[in-house]
């Protein structure tokens, strides 16, 4: 029973980190209806920046992390300026295609600047686990869950209660109408990409804490896809619940089914679950239903 509780709670915490990565998808989706396939590559940029600042430049963590966030904001701004500001009013299809092109481009940039070798990502968060009774909790995940909660609450407030956040939703709904109503569309989309890049960097710090880092680390972001879809791509508040569900399922499968199959069933369970969600309820738990007209 204690084992079960251990697995479930650890799954819950892992799910919250997935929810944090999924926030990056959702923020960009809310502002432009674009599904950003390069989210994992944004995470990669953030992770390598943190690595350079803390191990390359030997900055202390309390300085390295904020500087990395500023750098991430700059990446988001640059990507929007270079690519997406030219596509305002174009079809969503071409914007999604640009994010796919960005996957190749950013991976190339990372390879040029940092090379293909494996690197040890600095352990900026404490690696000693916290032990409560018989439950063992990794500290970095615990901090991650806390950050996810704080970010979810503040982003929920931002998107649903503030003028700038509601403007983002209007921009996603119809950029041309938004322009004619006096909303600064380019500024809104820039804001979304800056937020997306910044969230990706936070995710990198928590998820890669003390682990090895290479170009393939970007694939982790795909693990956050099922979480974003279960919540519904528009929903910010639903992400934590969705993360908890996916995380717990994955962790329990890893604990009880993997040893029997002798393989890594846990790695595809989220994807199978995602297919199931998409077929049964395409809008996710809290996504918006749209009425389509010709």
């Amino acid at each position: 029973m204690m084992d079960f509780l251990n697995y479930a709670i650890n799954g819950l915490l892992l799910g919250q980190v997935y929810a944090l990565l999924a926030l990056g998808f959702v923020v960009i989706y809310r502002a432009s209806k674009v599904f950003n396939f390069a989210q994992g590559e944004l995470m990669l940029l953030g992770a390598y920046t943190v690595w350079s600042l803390s191990l390359g430049a030997n900055l202390p963590p309390w300085l390295a992390i904020p500087v990395a966030f500023v750098a991430a904001l700059a990446y988001g701004w640059l990507i929007e300026r270079l690519f997406f500001s030219r596509l305002v009013g174009e079809s969503v299809f071409s914007m999604v295609m640009v994010t796919i092109g960005l996957v190749i481009l950013i991976r190339g940039v990372v390879l040029v600047i940092w090379g293909a070798a494996d690197r040890q990502f600095p352990a900026l968060l404490p690696t000693m686990p916290v032990i409560v009774g018989e439950v063992i909790l990794p500290t970095s995940m615990l901090i991650g869950a806390g950050i996810t909660l704080a970010l979810t609450l503040s982003l929920w407030y931002f998107f649903n209660r503030t003028r700038a956040g509601l403007a983002l939703t209007a921009v996603a709904e119809d950029p041309c109408t938004a322009i004619s109503l006096g909303i600064a569309v380019k500024r809104a989309v820039t804001l979304a990409w800056m937020l997306g890049a910044c969230i990706a960097t936070i995710g990198a710090v928590i998820l890669l804490n003390g682990r090895s880092l290479n170009v393939l680390s970007a694939d982790v972001a795909l693990a956050a896809l099922p979480v974003a879809l279960l919540a519904g791509l528009e929903s910010i508040g639903g992400l934590m619940l969705a993360g908890a569900i996916v995380g717990i399922i994955q962790s329990l499968v890893a604990a009880y089914i993997d040893p029997k199959l002798g393989g890594s069933a846990s790695s595809i369970v989220p994807f199978v679950f995602m297919l199931f969600i998409l077929v049964v309820r395409p809008t996710g738990l809290f996504g918006w239903r749209n009425i389509e007209r010709v």
Partner: peptide, 9 residues
């Protein structure tokens, strides 16, 4: 080699 990838991207 990597910068060629950047170029193609």
């Amino acid at each position: 080699f990597a910068s060629m990838n950047v170029l193609l991207g």
